[in-house]
């Protein structure tokens, strides 16, 4: 019983932390985008207003049970990956489920939510949703390949599939894996561009073409859960990158600095990019990123 309470408590604290950091990042990225476009932009806390406004709004319609459950599926992915990924080094925080799953489990739980939400978007009957979903799924097939190649390279180089072990290796040797496995890092970062769905990979929910795609027909509490799961999931993904490539973090400040630097990669790349068509973006991921992934595997296997 005590164990369950501890897990629940850990989940709540991690969730709240991820929620605040994730939403703040969203706000900051809006400011950065605005400054690049020579605008002033909203204040950094604007997204908190947005998200609480959505929560306080009444939602009066739904299109059926899958539509109703879709955002909950998305939340499962966000919170589960947050619980699997260690937030700080050396177990100085709640260990949550860090020792219960490994990288392969994480890869699969990370697609659980998008697929569940895709079902929810499908039931709304809005053709834009379904079109967005087919584009999103195609893009997943694109960027998962370099992403998995990078992870497989790490796994075979260090003979472990556990995230905690990868962090311990970095702590012991004092070298970040982004320097010892540079190709894996490059492949993973390129895959990250697709994961965060900023331009040029934002065809999935392109507002001008698809009326925000899978998100259309969602408002109020549904959009609230989706938005907060997006924030939590973004934080979890960034923490994962920090954990396996950048030596993890010992305290919150280091974590925030490292994740923010990482987060700026897709944001800044996105601001100056046009939008790819789906097949262009899929082909992009099967091109250079996959080549870097291949180099990473070769390096891990033979060096």
């Amino acid at each position: 019983m005590g164990e369950i309470l501890q897990y629940t408590w850990g989940a709540i604290v991690s969730f709240v932390l991820a929620f605040f950091v994730g939403i703040t990042y969203m706000g900051l990225s809006r400011i950065v985008t605005a400054r690049v476009q020579n605008r002033i932009g909203p204040p950094w806390y604007q997204n908190f207003f947005d998200v609480f406004k959505l929560f306080s709004k009444d939602t009066s319609i739904h299109h059926g049970i899958m539509h109703h459950m879709g955002p909950a599926f998305m939340m499962v992915t966000a919170v589960m990956s947050l619980l699997i990924i260690p937030i700080f080094n050396g177990g100085s925080f709640f260990t949550n489920l860090n020792f219960h799953g490994d990288l392969i489990f994480l890869i699969y739980i990370m697609v659980f939510g998008p697929l569940g939400m895709a079902l929810g978007a499908g039931q709304t009957g809005n053709p834009n949703s379904a079109i967005g979903v087919t584009r999103g799924l195609s893009q997943i097939v694109g960027f998962e390949i370099p992403w998995v190649m990078a992870l497989v390279a790490l796994m075979i180089q260090y003979k472990t599939t556990s995230i905690v072990d990868l962090m311990n290796i970095q702590a012991e040797t004092g070298k970040w894996l982004m320097f010892t496995s540079p190709f894996a890092f490059i492949a993973a970062v390129l895959a990250m561009l697709g994961m965060f769905r900023y331009a040029p990979f934002d065809i999935v929910g392109a507002p001008q073409e698809l009326a925000s795609g899978p998100m259309s027909e969602n408002g109020g509490k549904y959009l609230f859960v989706m938005m907060s799961s997006g924030a939590v999931f973004a934080f979890a993904k960034l923490t994962l990158y920090v954990d396996i490539f950048m030596g993890g973090a010992n305290n919150l400040i280091i974590l925030v600095v490292k994740t923010f630097i990482l987060y700026m990669i897709p944001v800044l790349y996105g601001i100056v990019s046009p939008r790819y068509r789906t097949e262009q973006s899929v082909r992009f991921f099967w091109g250079w990123p996959t080549l870097f992934g291949l180099l990473a595997i070769l390096q891990a296997a033979f060096l």
Partner: peptide
Amino acid sequence: AIAGIFLFFLILLTVKGWKTMRYVTTKDIS
């Protein structure tokens, strides 16, 4: 854990505004 998280958010989604919610057909979209 998966079941717990899913149920928690499903209940949250269901309970909030339960009384005013109604089903509309898939033709009632924008």
